[in-house]
Computed example of a mutant assay.
Amino acid sequence: MAELVPDYFSAGWRTRALACPCGWEGDSRGMAMELHDQVTDYACPQCGNLLLIVTHPTLAQVRQAAAEGQAEAIEQLAIVEEARRHFPSGAEGRDG
């Protein structure tokens, strides 16, 4: 069964080692990644078994993490705010 990471900004999920029943071991950086609207799936590169599901952050979560000083969130928020300035009607995204 795949591990769910409900908080994108939680520490360590990218580097935490996972083991697949097929024998492969590694972290998300070595897995096959598939991007979806609300989540990103990470699968074993050897057999394709789904090992990790990471929920994409809402804009509110990005803002909160940025306010807490999380560097990646600060960068993401700057990108979102720049997009909103250039495309005010089309850059709302998930604002929840």
Rank of each mutant, 00 (worst) to 15 (best):
T58H: 08
S89F: 00
G69C: 04
N49M: 13
P6V: 12
L4T: 07
Q76S: 08
L51M: 15
C47Y: 06
E75G: 07
R85Y: 05
L4N: 06
V80F: 08
A71P: 15
G96K: 04
G30F: 05
G93Q: 03
M33D: 00
A32N: 11
E81L: 12
E72H: 11
H86N: 08
S89N: 02
C47S: 08
C20N: 09
V62T: 12
L4P: 01
G26N: 12
G48P: 11
Y8D: 00
G69P: 02
Y8Q: 00
R29G: 10
P45I: 11
A60P: 00
V80Y: 09
R63M: 09
A60Y: 04
G26E: 10
Q46F: 06
E34W: 04
H86W: 09
F9S: 01
R29Q: 14
G90E: 12
Y8A: 01
P88L: 04
T40D: 09
G90D: 10
Q46C: 11
E3K: 14
S89C: 01
A67T: 05
V80A: 06
F9T: 03
A91K: 02
R14I: 08
A91R: 03
A17F: 05
A78E: 14
F87Y: 13
E68A: 14
D41E: 15
H36M: 04
R85I: 08
A73D: 07
E3R: 14
I53E: 14
T40W: 02
S28R: 09
S10R: 12
L52G: 00
L77M: 08
W24H: 11
P45V: 06
I53S: 13
L18V: 15
D27F: 06
I74T: 14
A43N: 06
A65H: 02
S28P: 07
R16M: 10
Y8V: 05
P88I: 10
D41W: 09
G48W: 15
D41Y: 12
M1S: 13
L18A: 07
G26Y: 12
R85M: 09
T15G: 07
D37R: 15
M1Y: 07
V54E: 03
E81R: 10
W13N: 00
E92F: 06
G96H: 05
D7L: 08
P88W: 10
Q70D: 14
D27L: 05
L52C: 04
Q70N: 14
F87M: 12
Y8E: 00
L52N: 01
G96N: 06
G23R: 11
D27S: 11
G96M: 01
F9D: 01
Q38E: 14
C47I: 10
Q61I: 02
C47M: 06
L77F: 09
M31I: 07
A2D: 07
R16D: 11
V54Y: 04
H56V: 03
A66Q: 10
Q64I: 02
E34P: 00
R29N: 12
H56D: 03
D27H: 15
P6Y: 10
